[in-house]
Design a protein around this nucleic acid. Structure first.
Lengths: 208, 208
DNA sequence: CCTACCGATCGGTAGG
DNA sequence: CCTACCGATCGGTAGG
């Protein structure tokens, strides 16, 4: 009663294509993907690569889903056992910057790159990028809200602002690492994130 | 003794192509530029567009230079008359976030997008993007160093860290505006930047 | 999952 | 700055 061999083989093929697509897109962008080049890399026919997806857009969406799954596995799952609130936020800061400072993908954080690539273009790929970005931002804001409720952050701390700043610092950490090649990128990012969690901006500082 | 008519006309043509290229690349990326499409947009022949540049890479570099010039005009020049140090840094934060929150380009901050697009690829375009990024980062760090020397920031504030954080927050502001469509993006970015300038991270906060 | 093909577009050049 | 062209590659499909 195991799945028919051909169905399992088809799944494996699809998975191999998606993994390679994520790698390629991390350096060349999602728009830089092509069936022909993937076929060469995987030593398959072009039609064999295109078949499981039908369109380039479907391939891009599949690669994006895979990248989200990797991010979840590398950043969210390791911190899920921490207590909600400030403790978990701190754990996220550590896991996230460590992820950005590592070299799991040749071109750096896929999701940051995809956000920049599609932020000016309409369509399903952009919609998916935006949806995932919003989802993660909501996770961060919810943790910040819990931290305020727990008295771990000041009553007037703004959870949305904290979420915004953590996200910005992650994007900056990725740029520091990938474009400028700074090995201290992760450390700089973590220092900044921890300060956001220590002295969060609520109201605009006076006199500036 | 005025320049020959044909030379002046050639300069105008080149300029028109570059301006259109910056616009196109702000949404589609520098790699998304093509002589053929620019020719259609400008109602010229493809060879007429390619001629003044020779290669696509030369066109990309010209578009990048133009975007840097726009950034300088919009962010640096308006603050150059301010006193060096904290006052000028604060003015930069205002001009920068205002620039990012405006809509001078359809696809948002060209330089942030180019950084993300080329951070994983070798070549002259990446080198130019990195060189410009480094140059701006040095300007920011120098201002922070002056602020420390003036006693406007704590003695142990780290100018490089301040430069890193301001840059990260700019990238985050651009993403907030372009991808998530948040009209408060500029305000959030400014709030965060001003806090960096008010309570800069120097050493890692204790106990985290 | 393959071969073979479609029309379109790519970067670039010859020649004027 | 134009027409006309080059070989290569694109996304996608027919048919098996």
């Amino acid at each position: 009663m195991s799945p028919r061999r051909s169905a399992a083989a088809a799944r494996d093929t699809r998975e191999a294509i998606v993994l390679r697509a994520v790698e390629t897109a991390s350096t060349d962008g999602l728009e830089g993907l092509s069936f022909g080049r993937l076929a060469q890399d995987l030593e398959m026919s072009k039609a064999g690569v295109a078949g499981p997806f039908g369109t380039k857009e479907a391939l891009q969406l599949a690669a994006l889903d895979e990248a989200v799954a990797v991010f979840t596995r590398r950043v969210w799952e390791p911190v899920a056992h921490h207590a909600p609130g400030l403790e978990r936020l701190t754990a996220i800061a550590r896991a996230w910057t460590s992820y950005l400072g590592g070299d799991c993908l040749p071109g750096g954080c896929f999701l940051t790159a995809a956000a920049a690539e599609f932020d000016g273009r309409p369509g399903p790929v952009r919609d998916s990028v935006a949806k995932n970005a919003r989802r993660w931002r909501k996770v961060l804001a919810a943790e910040a809200r819990t931290a305020v409720a727990n008295g771990e952050l000041p009553d007037d701390a703004d959870p949305e602002q904290i979420s915004f700043e953590l996200n910005a610092l992650a994007a900056g950490t990725n740029q520091e690492r990938q474009l400028l090649g700074d090995p201290r990128a992760a450390e700089r990012g973590l220092t900044a994130m921890l300060r956001v969690l220590t002295t969060p901006a609520n109201v605009r500082p006076r006199g500036l």
